[in-house]
């Protein structure tokens, strides 16, 4: 199977009659990374599935306008992050209880969560973080992204990101010590 880099995919997308093929290649290349990124924000598989579909539809609609000078990878992450955060906002608005606490308590019974006790506790600690810190922590700790990449996706300075990550780690450590 031929492997395409991002520029090749963009060229193919803008070639007449090749749009669908190019898009499918983009989806296949990035779907897992985007899904896991979204999943860590919205937590449940059902919600992540909704968000990832909306994200990919948005990508399809806007890929033509994508500025080739930017990185496709960060642009895709940006769309996915915004979609997930908007989705979460609506969920929180419609929830009568604290939504993070609700997710934290239901996580243990989630059929698509396969963690041991310590992993479950780590997830619950992450869920107790403020939204921005949670986002930075997930991208740095789980996705092992560089600060430069996170900075581009979240439109935040590297200094602020380092501080957020540092605070997040401290809070999680404290969460484990207190328990």
């Amino acid at each position: 199977m031929t492997t395409y880099n991002d520029n090749d995919l963009l060229k193919l997308f803008n070639t007449e009659g090749q749009k669908e093929k190019a898009f499918l290649l983009v989806v296949k290349k990035y779907q897992e990374k985007l899904y896991w990124h979204v999943r860590k924000i919205v937590i449940t598989h059902e919600d992540a599935d909704d968000v990832i579909q909306n994200t990919l539809i948005k990508i399809w609609k806007n890929l033509e306008k994508f500025n080739a000078n930017a990185q496709l990878y960060t642009w895709l992450y940006k769309i996915a992050t915004n979609e997930a955060l908007s989705y979460l906002k609506i969920k929180k608005k419609n929830s009568i209880v604290n939504y993070e606490e609700f997710l934290s308590t239901t996580l243990a019974g989630d059929e698509y969560f396969d963690g041991d006790k310590i992993k479950l506790k780590l997830q619950q600690a992450v869920l107790s973080l403020p939204e921005r810190q949670r986002l930075v922590f997930n991208m740095k700790y789980y996705d092992e992204m560089k600060y430069e990449e996170i900075s581009e996706i979240l439109d935040t300075s590297i200094g602020a990101l380092k501080a957020s990550y540092h605070h997040a780690r401290k809070k999680i450590e404290l969460y484990f010590k207190e328990d």
Binding site: W36, R39, K40, D114, I118, Y142, R169
Partner: peptide, 16 residues
Amino acid sequence: GSIFDKIENKSAYKVP
């Protein structure tokens, strides 16, 4: 000695 040394940074989430 951090908790992060004891936990693998692999997500415990699954998909169908």
